[in-house]
């Protein structure tokens, strides 16, 4: 992806729009995987966003790890609300050797908001999946310890869902004196 990366050898890529060998090799053989290229603030670098189906989720991430994207950076969840499938879960990996970044994401519907856990691939997914469970309410079957992480255990609901309100309460004016 830096300038010297040749972009012509994309003949093996079954997916249109991939001009990158490494990314193409990751999604090679997974039906329905799509790639978009995103610019970043540094003119020399881009990152690739790969969308896969939830059934391929763990295998794609494992393949990416074996292909060199071995540094776990981030795992996020988004509630798209009106757009079905409603939830998006993505994992952000980097390959330090090749200086490349890939975001692999998948979408799951409201009535089955489960994404298989990545803790078997990257141990570091542990806290991030707990956070996604806590705030958005995605279930990660297979996670060893899927409990709330940021909110107290008694909490009801998942505040970062779009149908959950901000929870603002009207400003209360309190009695007091001002020392001038």
């Amino acid at each position: 992806m830096t300038g010297e990366m040749p972009t012509v050898e994309s003949d093996s890529s079954a997916v249109p729009g991939t001009e990158n060998d490494l990314v193409a090799s990751v999604i090679d053989g997974f039906d329905g995987a799509t790639v978009t290229e995103h610019a970043t603030a540094s003119s020399a670098t881009v990152y690739h966003q790969v969308s896969v189906s939830v059934d391929d989720w763990v295998s794609v991430v494992r393949k990416a790890k074996n292909a060199g994207f071995d540094a776990f950076v981030d795992l996020y969840a988004v509630d798209h609300f009106a757009q079905a499938p409603r939830y998006e879960v993505g994992v952000n990996l980097i390959s330090m050797e090749n200086n490349q970044r890939i975001i692999i994401s998948t979408r799951v519907p409201y009535d089955d908001a489960t994404v298989p856990t990545l803790t078997g691939v990257f141990v570091g997914a542990n806290f991030y999946e707990r956070e996604a469970y806590d705030l958005i309410g995605i279930d990660f079957p297979g996670h060893p310890d899927l409990t709330r992480i940021l909110l107290p255990d008694e909490w009801v609901g998942h505040p970062l869902r779009k149908d959950s309100s901000v929870g603002a309460i009207p400003v209360q004016f309190k009695a007091g004196s001002v020392d001038l």
Partner: peptide, 24 residues
């Protein structure tokens, strides 16, 4: 003192709801 700029689900809107405050 009042929750500041974060009027949301996570914050207590003023510590005086929990303990008596003498000075703000």
């Amino acid at each position: 003192s009042s929750g500041g700029m974060f009027n949301n689900y996570a914050l207590v809107q003023g510590v005086d709801q929990v303990v008596p405050v003498d000075m703000y």
